[in-house]
Amino acid sequence: MNLIIVRPARELRVDFARWAVAQTPKVRTCSTTDFAVPPHLFTHLPEHLLVGSLVDGHRYVPVEDENPEWLTAVPGEPLPAVPDSAYGPGSVPLDAAPGHGALLAGAAEPGQAAVEEAATVVQAAEDAAAEGDSSDPTSPSGPPYACQLCPRTFSTARGRDAHHRQVHREA
Rank of each mutant, 00 (worst) to 15 (best):
residue 99 G to E: 13
residue 131 E to T: 15
residue 39 P to Y: 06
residue 105 A to L: 13
residue 133 D to V: 12
residue 80 P to C: 04
residue 39 P to N: 01
residue 119 A to S: 03
residue 90 G to L: 12
residue 128 A to S: 13
residue 84 D to V: 10
residue 168 H to N: 04
residue 106 G to V: 11
residue 83 P to Q: 13
residue 135 S to D: 15
residue 134 S to R: 15
residue 75 P to S: 15
residue 20 A to T: 10
residue 43 T to F: 06
residue 165 R to W: 07
residue 84 D to T: 12
residue 90 G to H: 13
residue 144 P to V: 02
residue 104 L to S: 11
residue 35 F to S: 00
residue 29 T to C: 15
residue 162 A to Y: 07
residue 59 R to W: 00
residue 151 P to L: 05
residue 4 I to V: 15
residue 57 G to P: 03
residue 40 H to G: 04
residue 33 T to F: 04
residue 14 V to C: 05
residue 51 V to Y: 02
residue 150 C to H: 04
residue 126 E to W: 09
residue 18 R to Q: 09
residue 70 W to D: 11
residue 73 A to T: 13
residue 168 H to W: 06
residue 49 L to P: 01
residue 30 C to T: 15
residue 58 H to E: 02
residue 100 H to M: 05
residue 96 A to W: 00
residue 139 S to R: 06
residue 90 G to F: 10
residue 155 S to F: 01
residue 135 S to G: 04
residue 154 F to P: 02
residue 54 L to S: 03
residue 48 H to W: 05
residue 164 H to Q: 04
residue 55 V to G: 03
residue 137 P to A: 08
residue 48 H to Y: 04
residue 143 P to Q: 09
residue 161 D to P: 01
residue 157 A to P: 02
residue 50 L to P: 05
residue 142 G to K: 07
residue 165 R to K: 13
residue 38 P to K: 05
residue 94 L to R: 08
residue 136 D to N: 09
residue 40 H to A: 12
residue 49 L to C: 02
residue 62 P to W: 13
residue 63 V to C: 05
residue 20 A to M: 12
residue 2 N to K: 10
residue 19 W to A: 03
residue 132 G to Y: 15
residue 28 R to G: 11
residue 63 V to S: 00
residue 92 V to M: 11
residue 100 H to V: 14
residue 83 P to D: 07
residue 122 V to H: 11
residue 111 G to W: 00
residue 86 A to D: 01
residue 111 G to V: 09
residue 52 G to H: 04
residue 21 V to S: 06
residue 106 G to Y: 14
residue 108 A to I: 07
residue 32 T to M: 01
residue 9 A to H: 15
residue 142 G to H: 14
residue 124 A to N: 04
residue 119 A to N: 10
residue 12 L to C: 04
residue 12 L to R: 11
residue 73 A to I: 07
residue 159 G to I: 03
residue 85 S to N: 02
residue 51 V to C: 03
residue 135 S to A: 12
residue 120 T to D: 12
residue 116 E to S: 03
residue 123 Q to C: 05
residue 47 E to A: 11
residue 160 R to H: 11
residue 16 F to H: 06
residue 110 P to W: 14
residue 4 I to L: 15
residue 157 A to N: 02
residue 68 P to V: 06
residue 82 V to Y: 08
residue 42 F to H: 13
residue 150 C to R: 02
residue 75 P to F: 14
residue 161 D to G: 06
residue 46 P to K: 06
residue 120 T to R: 15
